[in-house]
């Protein structure tokens, strides 16, 4: 019911802008789509709790002093037989609280996901824009590289980049750099999709005469691309970025699961799942189950949002 409250009276520019945003087609489509609202709430809760992890986590899973081996393998919601401590989602073999580890883990996962999406977005949109606008050999070169890139599974590309980075970075700095290596590895394996989409839209936009009008007043290629073409090709890119965020998080989890991702000192959800699966057959199911559930929910929420955004921005489905 709360959602049907009329917008506050418009006074001044900021409130007016809010009201306009509330009245926009996109906001209406959002309000009337229960799936979108559900996904947004779920995603928001998970993102907020990841950001606020140090505040809400009951234990600090990375403080060795607070860990007690006696707390190991505590079942969810049941007091530990020796210490009597209760872990909501149980604890792992070292007595680490799974719930806290998930909070910190989703922090890493989200950070890697978001950063790699931004990285591949900037790279892909930039290259696609140049390819579409300049054309000719530049376009052929960029798009053939993208084709080659797309013919490899993303995970293989990421593994390759990761391996090369391992060789280049001195061992002492490796643990520190892992997160950024992951960002680059995942980012480099996903840019081609943006480049293709943006090139396509750029080819359409650059033949519209408003681009001619801008060139007529003597604007150089760069300002025309950035000021005129770019804002008009960003719609589909945002949809891809949202869906890719979920994919990037899963890709990071996959890499971590394979053991080439985040180290155990800074575990992501994928690292937690890798540890958990060792205990799956010995009955300690919760060590695997809850991090996996968190990953699924996070990816699901973001994917649902992306799907909704794609439909909402598609004029043919209105």
């Amino acid at each position: 019911m709360n959602q049907n409250v009329p917008p506050p009276p418009t006074t001044g520019a900021p409130a007016g802008r809010l009201a306009r945003a509330w009245d926009s087609d996109l906001a209406y489509s959002f309000r009337t789509s229960p799936v979108a609202v559900f996904a947004a709430v779920l995603a928001l809760v998970m993102v907020m709790s990841a950001i606020a992890a140090p505040l809400i986590a009951p234990y600090d899973p990375f403080d060795p002093a607070s860990l007690d081996l006696m707390d190991g393998f505590t079942r969810p919601m049941q007091p530990n037989e020796i210490s009597g401590k209760v872990f909501w989602l149980g604890s792992d073999g070292q007595g680490r609280d799974i719930f806290s580890a998930i909070l910190y883990g989703s922090r890493v996962s989200l950070l890697v996901g978001a950063a790699s999406v931004i990285f591949s977005l900037v790279l892909g949109v930039g290259l696609g824009l140049v390819a579409g606008y300049v054309g000719g050999r530049t376009e052929a070169l960029i798009m053939r590289v993208a084709d080659i890139q797309l013919s490899f599974p993303a995970i293989l590309v990421a593994l390759l980049v990761f391996g090369v980075a391992r060789g280049l970075i001195p061992p002492a700095a490796q643990e520190q750099a892992t997160l950024w290596v992951l960002v680059v590895a995942i980012g480099l394996s996903n840019w081609a999709q943006y480049a293709r989409t943006v090139r396509g839209s750029t080819l359409v936009e650059k033949n519209k005469v408003y681009v001619d009008a801008a060139r007529l007043i003597g604007l150089k290629a760069m300002p025309v691309m950035l000021r005129h073409v770019l804002p008009n090709v960003m719609g589909p890119v945002l949809v891809i970025a949202t869906i890719n965020l979920a994919l990037a998080i899963i890709e990071e989890a996959t890499l971590s699961f394979l053991g080439v991702g985040m180290p155990p000192t800074q575990p992501s959800l994928g690292t937690l799942i890798r540890f958990g699966q060792q205990f799956l057959f010995s009955g300690e199911w919760w060590i695997l189950f809850f991090p996996a559930l968190a990953l699924v929910l996070l990816a699901l929420a973001i994917n649902l949002l992306g799907d909704w955004l794609r439909d909402a921005l598609n004029p043919k489905l209105r």
Binding site: V209, D212, L216, I217
Partner: peptide
């Protein structure tokens, strides 16, 4: 010479950048 020379295009639906407000479009030159 560029500032003395302008063009009016056939399709008024495509000749104005859809993401720009009209005052910005006119102010651009």
């Amino acid at each position: 010479l560029r500032r003395k020379m302008q063009m009016i295009f056939q399709d008024p639906y495509a000749s104005l950048n859809p993401r720009w407000r009209v005052d910005r479009i006119i102010a651009e030159p």
